[in-house]
Amino acid sequence: MNSALTSIKLVLLGEAAVGKSSIVLRFVSNDFAENKEPTIGAAFLTQRVNMGDHTIKFEIWDTAGQERFASLAPMYYRNAQAALVVYDVTKPQSFIKARHWVKELREQASKDIIIALVGNKLDMVETGAERKVALEEAENLASQEGLLFFETSAKTGSNVNEVFLAIGQKIPLKSAQQQQQGQGSSGLRINDDSRVDLRAAQDGPAPSSCNC
C-alpha cells in the first residue's frame, strides 16, 4: 500500500545504564543483549512503522547517559519532535535524573515536543527485585508535566513498541486521519519481518497517557 511518510526525530535521554540503548535495540531489531557497551556520544538508528494508511519513520538519537557527556545532549534534543526520558524502576536516583531531563526539555527543547516518561527494567520487579520508583510517583509527574507514561522491559520487550506507537499517534500527520485512534492501532505493524504485530501485544497494562 502506498502511504504517506512522516519522519519523527526522536531523542532518548536518561541516566547511564537505565536501558536506553536496549529499548532502541528492542524497537529496531527486536533483540536484547545482556551486557551492552555504554553509549559514547550518541548513537543514531532508524525504524519505520506502518500505521494504517501512513508510515512513520523514527530517526532516533540514543544519547550517552553519563553526566560527563550531558553537555552534548542539547545538540540532539534541539530539533527533536519527541523524547523518551528513561529511568530504571529499581533505581531511585535515575528517577531524579529523569525529572531533571523533563525540566530541561521543557525549558530548552522545542515547545511542542512530545515527551514520554519511560520506567524500564520492569521485568526485574516481576522477578523479585525491589521496585524503587512507585507507579503513582511516576504517574503524578507524567500528569503534571503532560507526558506520555509507560513502564517497559527492554529485556522481555513488554510495552516497548507501545511507547513508539503512542508517540506516532500523537504526532501531527500529513494525512488528517490521526484522530481515528482505533483504526490507527489496529492497522499498526512494523515493516520488518522480525517484528511482532503490535495488536498481539496490546493486552499489557494500558498506557496512561495524558493528552494535553
Partner: peptide, 12 residues
C-alpha cells in the same frame, strides 16, 4: 556504582 555497572559492559 558507575564503574560497577560498566565493568560487565566492557568488551562484552
Amino acid at each position: 556504582h558507575q564503574i560497577e555497572i560498566d565493568i560487565p559492559r566492557t568488551n562484552p
